[in-house]
Each structure stands twice: as C-alpha cells, then as structure tokens.
Design a protein around this nucleic acid. Structure first.
Lengths: 147, 147
DNA sequence: TATTGACCTCAAGTAGACATGAGGTTTTAG
DNA sequence: CTAAAACCTCATGTCTACTTGAGGTCAATA
C-alpha cells in the first residue's frame, strides 16, 4: 500500500481489462513504474488518463490519434503553453466531430416520411419523376469529402 | 444510361472504393439490382445511403449499428411510423455521442495547467499531498461505466 | 515458509472493415 | 466486331484493438 496501483487495481477501478492496459502501455498511451520483480505500478493519475482514453475511444477516436494528443500530456511536468496547444487541438477535433454528428442528426430530422435524405429528389415525394437532373441541393452530403 | 448507376459510378460519386461497396452489400447495408451479366446496378438513392454510412462511420458508429438503423430505411416503401421510430433511435444515439464528446471537450477545458483532469487531486495543484482519500468529486469519470 | 492468487512475457488468435490479386466475364467505344 | 475498360467471385492479406493461453515469476497471507 505505498500509494501506487497495480494493474489489477487499475483494471478494477477503470473498468478496462488487464490485457488492455498492457496493450495501451505497449502502444505508448500509458506508462508504468516497475517493482524489482518487474510488476507494474501506477500513479493514481493513470485513472484519469485511462478514463480519457475510454471516452475518446467511445467517441470513435482512434488510439493513434488519442496517443498523439496524450503525448503532450506528460505525467509530471507540463508547460502552460504545451497545455494550451494540446487543449486547442483536442477542442478543434472534438468540435469537428460534434458538428458532423449534429449535422447528421439534423439531416435525418429534416426528412419527414421517406427513406431519402433530401426532399428534393425523393421518389416518394416526387411522384412525377423529376429525377436524374442532378440539380443543386442534392449533393451536400455527397461532396463532403476530406483528406 | 438507363438511369441506374454502376459500381464504378457510385464509387466515383460517393468517394468510397468499389471493394467497399461490395463489402457493404455483402454485409447487407446496401442492395443492388443485377444485369443479365450479373453486374450491379444501383438506384440513385444509393448515393444518400452511402453518404449516411460514411458520415455515421466517421462519427465512430459501427457498421453493425448503422445497418440495424438503415434496415428500417427500405429503398421503396416506408411507413411514416417506421420512419418515426428509426429517426428517434438515431437521434437518441447521436445525442448520446454528441453529449459524450461535449463532456470530454469540456472536461479538457476545465483543467488549466496540469496533466490531470481534476483540480481536486492533481499533484501539481495539490502540493500538500492530500491524495489517497478518495473523496467525492474525483471519480466522475471512473465510474462512468456502461453495458 | 509455503502456497495461492496476481503478475510477467511472448505468441497466437479474433473481429471489424476493408484492400488486393487471381482468373475469368461483360460492356462499351471505336 | 473486337479490344480495352469495367465487372464478377472468391480467397487471402492488412490494420486496429484487443483477448487468450502457455509457461513461468512475484508477493502477500495463513
């Protein structure tokens, strides 16, 4: 009980499996100290770190991305400017995803009784068959490409 | 040019690879008609469907989930009540994710100059070492489990 | 001190989401 | 009509994010 946590402790308290913690360590998302017998010991701050990883993952962010952001999150020392930068990057990415989801949700909301997303060229709402003209307003989603 | 689209057309216009379209079809997310020669032909509405899939995926929603929602989205006939149900389910899930991301973002914002997420038990802001007491307010994230 | 439960490493397996390639068929443009 | 481009199926490969298992070590407690 020297104020550190074993893998088992962290697993129980964070809700992730021991194997997952090993994996995260291998991938560089978390770190551990070791006892003489090579067993992992963690600082309590690991719990927050794991919580962040879980939330971000659940939000669909890959471990690679999470790692790249967490790397600017050292366990001990951190400069305010480091923090500022990291924080704003996370924010930007999160905002982008939030926006994307919100748009999707609203897009879905905007269709009233058919299976299409546009009132414009929906076969149900367009019984005279005015399709095939590729008018504007129908491609908002299609052209939403990204790098 | 009989008003249908080939896989290549769909690939070009939707921005996903042909192999991906094959895969989506195999997994039941999209359907196709076939020519005598067994080649796929799609109705134009495929473009929206694929757009939805892409957006949802980008938002971190699995194909399994997307499929389960799209299944209530038949190409031709759809009842208003079907739509209502699907729409509200998507909404609920999207709202959940949006909330999750927003919380994560705000959590990150709430820390000022250290690597922890809580002002409460941050080693930098808590130099007198009042740790190890497991007081309330420090476990919001940790206890955020779910099925 | 002995033993049992927790840990360790390393290799291999799994599931989701595609990409690639082989070998062959269909379409379409000249 | 013919040749190239586009398709087809089916098998296999890849990457991510883990899980499982074998074989062995550590540590806490009775």
């Amino acid at each position: 009980m020297d104020n550190t946590l074993s893998v088992g402790d962290v697993a129980r308290r964070s809700g992730v499996a021991v194997s997952t913690l090993h994996y995260y360590e291998e991938k560089g998302l978390i770190q551990s100290l070791r006892t003489q017998g090579k067993q992992r010991r963690y600082h309590r701050s690991i719990l927050r770190r794991v919580a962040i990883i879980r939330i971000a993952k659940q939000a669909g962010i890959s471990l690679r991305i999470i790692k790249s952001h967490l790397e600017k999150f050292p366990t001990r020392e951190v400069s305010p400017s480091d923090w500022q930068q990291m924080s704003s990057e996370w924010r930007a990415m999160l905002n982008e995803r939030i926006l994307s989801l919100t748009q999707l949700r609203d897009k879905l909301d905007s269709c009233i009784g058919c299976g299409c997303l546009s009132l414009r060229d929906c076969p149900l709402r367009n019984p005279e068959d005015k399709l095939g003209e590729e008018g504007p307003g129908a491609r908002i989603l299609e052209e939403e490409r990204q790098s």
